[in-house]
Simulated scan of single mutants.
Amino acid sequence: MQINPYLFYDSNCEAAFKFYEKALGGKIEMMLRNEEAPAEMPSPPERKQKIMHARISINGAILMASDAPPERFNKPQGFAVSLTVDDPTEAERKFKALSEGGSVNMPFGKTFFSKGFGMCVDQFGIPWMVNCPAEM
């Protein structure tokens, strides 16, 4: 069994995944647009280029997403995508990349439980936690 986060964006899924591809070293594996759906699943003209389903692989982990219809979009809350990075320098670099253009809830820094930890919301409204675990 595998558990994967599925994120809903406010019509900026494609931009978010291209950003994650660059910032996190991911690889976009699928970017299915509404216009590619079967004829019996029509979408309004202004939504044809929006993303019906996307999939990105980031260091073996899978993140999936789509553009929520405007009437169904809710601001993300009550969760964060957690990123664990073994090297503290790389963890901080990824944290800085994710927080660029967004907001920092907890600056990246050493804690009692990690070599580095930080919390942010990226420019697309997705909450992230970046952790570099302490030696056990």
Rank of each mutant, 00 (worst) to 15 (best):
M31D: 05
M119N: 13
C132K: 01
F112K: 11
M30P: 01
A68R: 05
A54D: 02
L7H: 02
G25D: 04
Q77H: 09
P42M: 03
V81D: 01
A65Y: 07
T89P: 01
Q77L: 06
L7G: 04
P44N: 07
N34V: 07
T89I: 15
S103R: 02
P107N: 03
A91H: 10
M106L: 14
G25Q: 10
Q49R: 07
H53P: 01
F79W: 03
A61F: 11
K110A: 15
I56M: 08
Y9H: 00
T111L: 15
M129D: 04
F113P: 05
F79G: 00
M64N: 06
E14N: 05
A16W: 11
L63D: 10
A16Q: 07
R72G: 07
N74M: 09
A54T: 00
P5C: 15
M64S: 10
V130D: 13
A16E: 06
F117N: 09
G102E: 02
Q49M: 13
F124W: 09
K75L: 11
V85F: 01
S82V: 06
F79K: 06
P127M: 12
V81K: 00
S114P: 00
P69T: 07
S43Y: 14
C120R: 15
K18M: 04
F19R: 02
R47D: 01
P107Y: 03
